[in-house]
Amino acid sequence: MKTSMLDQILRDQEAKTPVALATELATGDQALIYYDSATGSLANNPEIVAAARQAIQDDKNGTVKLDAGEIYFQTFNPPLRMLIVGAVHIAQPLSRMASVVGYDVTVVDPRQSFASPERFPGISLNHEWPDDGLRELDIDRRTAVVTLTHDPKLDDPALGVALRSDAFYIGSLGSRGTHAGRTERLKGEGFTEAEISRIKGPVGLNIGAISPAEIAVSILGEVTDCLHAKEKKAAA
């Protein structure tokens, strides 16, 4: 690989621009392929360019046999995102742990004394009302949403936006009773039972978590489980 190509990939990651690196395994020839352009020695092969764009779309690394030979595609998509509603105690370890796992984390809470840089060093903060905040953040299929306030006036609007999105994970903190009440309120807003069943509640894997950090582990475990559910099914 050319040093300039490595530098370009790092700049693209910084700018959150999706890109794929195509490598012909037999020769080491390469190209950087974007949705709207391509550079490098393999960039003039339309078959390779098309396969690279598909790889970015699918978020998948792998080797494909094409007419040109065995081509390996490495995709560099922006990080997965986790949007945490409620800058409560559990959000502190959860935001740190999710960052380590590779998520781009944003904490949404209109209460500025909760969502403060002192409590969340290095984490993006959004002080909008949760539904406005989540709409602004434009949830996609590479986004997990976790609500932690267990206050209906903050959680419910957020869940409404999350349920209308492609989020791959929606989790909501609260006891069984809290969750039952929440389900009823969302039904009242016109959501069907099937739609509401996307919400993981009580949130997290049942691992007996007690402390905020342990609860964060159980939530992050469940998010990981949902992220890889398709591959797990395929492997079973």
Binding site: L6, I9, L10, Q13, D59, K60, N61, G62, T63, F76, N77, P79, L80, V101, G102, Y103, T224, L227, H228, K230, E231, A235
Partner: peptide, 14 residues
């Protein structure tokens, strides 16, 4: 071949 969706890239390696 397993070509599992990478939850996180090994950014720090590059």
């Amino acid at each position: 071949p397993s070509d599992v969706n990478q939850g996180s890239q090994d950014d720090d390696v590059l």
